[in-house]
Design a protein around this nucleic acid. Structure first.
Lengths: 291, 291
DNA sequence: ACGTTGTGATACCCGCCGGGTATCAGGACG
DNA sequence: CGTCCTGATACCCGGCGGGTATCACAACGT
């Protein structure tokens, strides 16, 4: 019984994502028949039916769903192996830190500043990404360490260090009736007829119900806010979002947001170690500034 | 540029572990020349030198060490994908719980008992392993959930639930001078000339220095204890080790041991969820019994 | 000094399998 | 009832993974 090969996993993932052999084959740059054969062979090897071929398209079986999740993780691990090995051979490899564009500006400035003080200062390359992408970048080796935010980001499977805890504020157009309030509650901001809260995709990629617009990039969101078309509840420090004509009002019962440093477990890089050390030394003054 | 294939990773891992192309080839069941070629091709693909061929054997480069670690993780992930998918197709799949042989007997009994009370009682298969093997079994999909012990086991990358905190005791032959003591300290037990403490391999596989015997299986250890050749400091609940002719004395300053339930993050199995729920309901009475 | 031994690298051949094209089979439409 | 559109099948071909035989070279023996 042969072992699984990454090629088979890639093929299956393509089919499982497209739910269409033709499109999947096109995406993979091969013809459809070999793809059908490969998936069939994979099913024979595993002794499990992965797809229900329904003459009109394809559907995942329960086992297929499991394999889709597991195969993505495995492919990420393989990609990470390649990337980290290549970078280990590079003598002047910078540490790649990834964070959501627009979040934790001041904290990141402080962190990089503190790291520059360190004697053996490894260079740090900052990579900006969209919401929810950090975990994937960390898992497949494109980044070494991430700034993430609990409870909104998926921290499963990473080692973490808490850096900063803060409340959240609502961002409102200056002329709005609620803009003059001293404080707000979630109930008050979640049901404003003329300013529906934007809906972000959940961890599984689906959108919650509601009247607000669906968004998945920060630039979309920025535009909506600038147009006064949506209400935003964000961590208090994200003042980068403070456009002219908008005001921030604390939302007292919104859950606190913790900014955490996250990295894959078992990382042995000394550069990462010094960054984590710098971060944990940095913490007291930063959290102190919060008061 | 082709992607990495698991075959290449398996080949490299074999060579990196054996540090000898001939033996590695034998282990893989292939001839030596194709193995040399495959590793060479892997180096070309990654653009990194992985091995220093020194006419007399082979040594890992720094990048090679990185790849060895990453490749093992990736291969575990691939193996886990296959195993979990096969088991997802099996309608009457039991949940596999792994624990160190001889540890946490009573807690495990209580846990299984509590789970049997549950209405939708999924069958649980208990798998016993040697010290330090749980993480690997969990990572490569041979087990779904593990009982592990902080701070001794490697919990990196798993979700966990604390179940039980306890102190440790020293196990001594009944006639030994220290056996009549009410309590002991680590300093006292760590330097007993006639009863050196056994040395376990660390997480990286090397052994600490010291006068005691090297052990890596529990049966070895059991024999050494029965012969009165070694002194053992273990969690208080591990009374299964209580042979005739031995007594347990509390070691007051030994670190507390926490028994935790651990499982791979992102597990969606309802059977696992009910086990975790049963465990967390079980916790108060169990920790209460500790007093 | 020279053969011996043991290492990994090279040369070369072969069979299998992954990939291609052409075609089939069978529901969903009009 | 033809026309799509789906995935499955049939078949061929080239490349690559695997084999055997051999080389190059260093560390040892005598």
């Amino acid at each position: 019984m042969h072992e699984l090969e990454t090629r088979e996993l890639r093929y299956f993932v393509a089919v499982a994502e497209e739910l269409h052999f033709g499109r999947a084959a096109e995406r993979l740059g091969i013809a459809q028949p070999p793809l059908s054969r490969a998936v069939r062979q994979l099913e024979r090897r595993l002794g499990v039916r992965l797809l229900d071929r329904d003459r009109r398209g394809v559907a995942l079986t329960e086992a297929g769903g499991v394999l889709l999740r597991e195969a993505r993780a495995a492919l990420d691990a393989v990609a990470a192996a390649a990337r980290r090995t290549r970078r280990a051979g590079d003598p002047k490899r910078p540490l790649v830190l990834v964070t959501k564009a627009g979040a934790s500006h001041e904290l990141l400035r402080g962190l990089l500043g503190a790291l520059a003080e360190e004697p053996g200062a490894a260079p740090v390359e900052v990579l900006l990404c969209e919401v929810g992408e950090q975990a994937g970048l960390l898992r497949d080796g494109r980044a070494d360490v991430a700034l993430m935010h609990r409870p909104y980001d998926d921290l499963a499977g990473f080692d973490t260090e808490d850096l900063y805890v803060e409340g959240q504020i609502a961002l409102l157009p200056a002329g709005h009736p609620l803009a003059s309030r001293e404080r707000l509650t979630l109930a008050e901001v979640s049901d404003v007829p003329d300013l529906p809260i934007a809906r972000w995709p959940r961890l599984d990629g689906t959108y919650p119900d509601g009247p607000g617009p669906e968004v998945h990039t920060q630039s979309q969101l920025a535009q909506l806010v600038a147009l006064g078309r949506t209400l935003l509840v964000i961590p208090a420090s994200s003042r980068a979002w403070q456009w002219p004509g908008h005001v921030a009002v604390p939302v007292v019962d919104a859950p606190d947001v913790t900014t955490v440093l996250a990295w894959p477990p078992k990382s042995h890089s000394p550069a990462l170690a010094s960054l984590v050390r710098a971060a944990s030394c940095l913490r007291p003054p930063v959290t102190g500034r919060h008061d």
